[in-house]
Design a protein around this nucleic acid. Structure first.
Lengths: 243, 243
DNA sequence: CGCTCAAACTTGGTAAAACAACCTGTCGGG
DNA sequence: CCCGACAGGTTGTTTTACCAAGTTTGAGCG
């Protein structure tokens, strides 16, 4: 049969050059072979070489300078640190995959901040689903999910049972909405007495509160996720290029 | 003279299509004209059309599906929110551009977390430069900069005078190091008595502590920036695509 | 009428060629 | 000795051409 599709030539070239950079054949700071040399060595056409080098440049492996050549920068170190995005996991993974306890599931009045993120009137009603996540037999995080009432109708989110499907897939198949990006706000505050008790944390330790507004491609807010992290047990990490 | 360089054709095509999407000529969800139609309308070749459409896809304006066509997604809403990166501004802007007060400048023993970010031994010596930034006649943030001693030698950072040049440019011209990316850690904690006093904040309000490890292209840490933000007055915002 | 399959569309990938813009040496002439 | 012109290298942009792969449509046949 041999239906294994071979990757396109330019992708093979990308991998070959990446291997050479990682192995030290093309050390950082050195000049990459010119387009003409690569054409001859790999027996491909110039558009193929250029396509491969464009990918490498966009990924940060090399940088090019018209008239001089392409310089090796090395394996992009930034890609090594994967940011931890609280809330991401709760949107794609089913609730049954992480142990936890559902502590609230019903319609409530929206807090001001959440209402603003949902483009809704303050104190208007929305559906709230709140869970405490348990790791190593200890409560570690509280995850809250707010949905407009029209988005919660006809879904299993209103039930008190753990979801056996990711929220993202659940809403896509039943309501036809497609998650696109998340606008995230990070703040810190002291826990309420109830929160400290539910999370098993001292009352004098602050909380990291992460609000994630999930929106579709046009920017319309769909749901809001709030993750509460005791600051003595969690921290957030991210990486970005300096402008 | 007419030395104004005209943008390349594919970039012009990108702008033209962006305008049509924004004006509603190509509403979201609709099918973009096929490559052949665009070739005829704009009188360009196919690679030029493809290059323009590739840019639009990478920027999130459209998505393509082999065999069917290219679908309009609309103006990428994510790009509208620009993340606020504390520390970024302090690396590029001169200290004289924002009012503040220098409260420390000298060699100190490294705290554990900063030593780890610098790949240095804990309690080893490094140079610390600490400033309180004043906005609207009120202290609002504390910015600390740690540098390895060999990187601070021969610079004006060790002086008690405000820098008239950005730190990034300062270190590039005098020490030849080039900033590439930042690995950021966000935590929350209670302020010390001294910090609360210097920042003019209540003692029962937590601090958002942002640690930024500035590294070069190979991942070697260069300097560490710490920004302390009273949580009742600041919050962090960011946006990212849902995977 | 319903099903099958081929034709005609779409985007994705490769090849060959040419010109333009930019950099860096070398080789003269002043 | 200095400086400018020039040749030869590099990447950037554009064109023409062809084939491959996925999707839709409709003609034709049972």
């Amino acid at each position: 049969m041999s239906l294994e599709s071979v990757p396109p030539k330019y992708a093979q070239l990308v991998q070959a050059l990446q291997r050479r950079i990682e192995s030290g054949t093309y050390p950082p700071g050195s000049l990459l072979p010119s387009e003409h040399q690569l054409i001859q060595e790999f027996s491909v056409s110039r558009p193929t070489v250029v396509a491969a080098l464009r990918v490498l440049r966009e990924q940060g492996w090399i940088e090019s300078q018209q008239g001089k050549g392409r310089f090796v920068r090395g394996r992009p170190a930034m890609a090594a640190v994967e940011p931890n995005r609280p809330g991401q996991a709760y949107l794609t993974n089913p609730e049954t995959s992480t142990p936890g306890e559902l502590i609230e599931a019903g319609a409530v009045a929206l807090p001001n901040r959440v209402a603003a993120l949902l483009d809704a009137q303050p104190k208007s009603k929305a559906f709230l689903r709140r869970r405490v996540v348990i790791r190593d037999s200890e409560p570690t995080e509280q995850v809250s999910l707010w949905l407009p009432l029209e988005l919660s109708e006809g879904t299993s989110l209103t039930s008190g049972e753990p979801l056996r499907e990711g929220i993202r897939e659940h809403l896509r198949s039943r309501k036809g909405v497609r998650f696109d990006h998340i606008v995230e706000q990070i703040t810190a505050r002291m826990p309420t007495a109830q929160e400290a008790k539910q999370l098993g944390m001292p009352k004098n330790v602050p909380l990291l509160a992460v609000f994630g507004a999930v929106r579709d491609a046009s920017g319309r807010p769909l749901v809001v996720v709030e993750v509460l992290l005791p600051a003595d047990r969690h921290e957030l990490e991210d990486a970005y290029p300096v402008s």
